[in-house]
Computed example of a mutant assay.
Amino acid sequence: MTSHQTAQTMKPATAAKKLGVYLEATPAEFQEGVVSRTELNALQADPPEWLRELRANGPHPRPVVAAKLGVSISGLARGGITEPLTTEQIEALKQEAPEWLQKERATQAEVRKETVRIKAKHAEQAEKAERSAKDASGQQ
């Protein structure tokens, strides 16, 4: 009995998300087709000119804009940024450093600091639990 393995495919929106590009800015043939896992891997390994251009200059989807600005996606929305931005627009925003951006960056920095603190606390608790378990098994 032979098994026929079909190629795993995804919608263009999913592929664009994995590539970190704004779907509406991709070529029509990309938007209208399906993308196989093999094609996605090929695009990531050796990006064509259109993909290199989009990654470099945009327009960028919100997750990429948020990352480039150092804020959360929610922070973008609170700042009134709901549309994709180009690299040039992102750089202009960084230069302007509006009050909302400064506030959201500070918020994001606090969130990251708290995440690190919680992770360290959990690691310490796990270490204590492991030591207690070793001590308990050693005493029996």
Rank of each mutant, 00 (worst) to 15 (best):
A133V: 00
S3F: 11
E104M: 08
G70S: 05
Y22R: 00
Q89L: 03
E96N: 01
T26S: 15
T87H: 09
N41D: 13
N57C: 04
T82W: 10
K134L: 09
A129Y: 02
S132G: 03
E104C: 00
P61W: 09
R112Y: 06
A126W: 04
Q89I: 06
L85G: 03
E39Q: 11
W100E: 02
N41V: 11
S132N: 09
T6I: 14
A67Y: 04
G70P: 06
A67S: 09
L54T: 10
V35Y: 08
E53Q: 14
L51M: 13
E49W: 12
T82M: 11
G70M: 10
K134E: 04
K68C: 01
P84D: 05
T2E: 15
V71A: 01
E39I: 01
S36A: 10
P84Y: 09
A77C: 08
L19H: 04
T38Q: 11
P27Q: 04
A28H: 07
T9V: 15
E114V: 12
Q125Y: 14
S74K: 09
P47R: 07
Q8G: 00
A133R: 08
S74P: 00
N57S: 12
E127K: 06
S74D: 06
R105D: 04
L54N: 11
A25V: 15
Y22Q: 13
T38S: 12
R62P: 10
D135E: 07
A25H: 14
L40D: 02
P63L: 06
H4G: 02
G75I: 05
V116A: 12
R78H: 09
K119E: 06
Q108N: 03
K134P: 02
E127V: 01
P63Y: 03
R55W: 12
A16T: 07
E83H: 07
E124C: 02
L19I: 07
E114D: 12
A109Q: 10
I73N: 11
H4R: 12
A123M: 15
W100D: 00
